[in-house]
Amino acid sequence: MAGSYHFRPMTPADLAQIRRWLALPHVQEWWGDPAEQYALVSGDLDEPAMDQFIVATDASDLGYIQCYDLTAWNSGFGDQPVGTRGIDLFIGAPDMIARGHGSALIRAFADDRLAQGAPRIVTDPDPANARAVRAYAKAGFQKAGRVDTPDGPALLMVRDA
C-alpha cells in the first residue's frame, strides 16, 4: 500500500476517467446508475460549495473524492457545527481495492480538512456497504446513527477535530 496520497483538484480533463470509473461494477454497486452519477459529478464542477478531487499516489490516479459544505445541502444529517464538511468517494482503479487504500486516504483527507479548520467531517455510507463502513471507522469516524437520505437509508458517520 502506498503511504502518500495527493488530492488534485478535478478538472474537465478528468471527466473521461470519471466516466470510466463510474461504469465499473465495483463503483456502480454503491454509486448507482453511471449516467446519472456522471451527470451529477460533472455538473458539480462549477458548484462553489463542492470541492472535487482526483486521489492519486506517486504512481497513478486511483479514485475520486468530493467534499462539500454541509450547510449548502439539505442533507438530512441533523444539526451539525457550522463549517462541517461532508465527503463521498470511491476507489476507481480495480487493482487498488482491498489493499488498505480506502481507510488510509480517508484518514489523510480528513486530517487535512480538520487541520484547515473544519470542525467535523461527516459521511453517509449505505449500511450494507461493510467495506466502506470499516474503512471510515479505521480512519477515525464514529457511527452516529441511521439517517434517511434521498438515496435511501444511510449510516451517518462523523469525525471531529
Rank of each mutant, 00 (worst) to 15 (best):
M1S: 10
S4R: 10
Y5D: 07
Y5V: 09
H6Q: 14
H6Y: 11
H6A: 13
P12D: 13
P12M: 06
P12H: 10
A16H: 07
A16L: 09
I18W: 02
I18F: 02
I18G: 02
R19F: 00
R20G: 09
L22E: 10
L24S: 13
P25D: 11
H26T: 02
V27G: 11
V27E: 10
Q28G: 15
Q28F: 09
E29R: 15
W31Q: 08
G32D: 08
D33M: 04
Q37H: 04
Y38L: 15
A39K: 12
A39G: 11
G43Q: 09
D44F: 02
D44P: 01
L45Q: 10
D46N: 13
E47H: 14
P48K: 06
P48E: 03
P48A: 03
A49Y: 05
A49H: 10
M50D: 13
M50T: 15
M50Y: 09
I54Y: 01
V55G: 07
A56H: 03
A56K: 07
T57F: 00
T57M: 06
S60V: 08
L62C: 10
Y64P: 06
Y64L: 04
I65Y: 00
I65S: 05
C67V: 11
Y68L: 06
Y68T: 04
D69F: 00
D69V: 10
L70W: 03
L70A: 02
A72K: 12
A72H: 13
W73Y: 14
S75L: 05
S75N: 09
S75P: 04
G78A: 03
D79F: 04
P81E: 04
V82A: 08
G83L: 00
T84M: 04
G86S: 10
L89C: 02
I91Q: 08
I91N: 09
G92L: 11
G92D: 12
P94F: 10
D95W: 08
D95C: 04
M96F: 02
M96E: 14
M96R: 15
I97E: 08
I97H: 11
A98K: 11
G100D: 09
G100R: 08
A104K: 07
A104R: 05
L105H: 07
L105V: 04
I106D: 08
I106A: 13
A108N: 01
R113S: 02
R113Y: 03
A115T: 10
Q116G: 02
G117M: 01
G117T: 06
A118Y: 01
V122E: 03
T123Q: 09
D124G: 01
P125R: 02
D126T: 02
P127C: 12
P127N: 12
P127R: 13
A130K: 14
R131N: 13
R131Q: 14
Y136S: 01
A137E: 15
K138I: 12
G140E: 14
F141S: 05
Q142A: 15
Q142G: 12
K143A: 14
A144T: 10
R146V: 12
R146A: 13
V147E: 09
D148M: 06
T149N: 04
P150V: 06
D151Q: 08
G152Y: 08
L156S: 08
M157C: 12
A161K: 05
A161T: 02
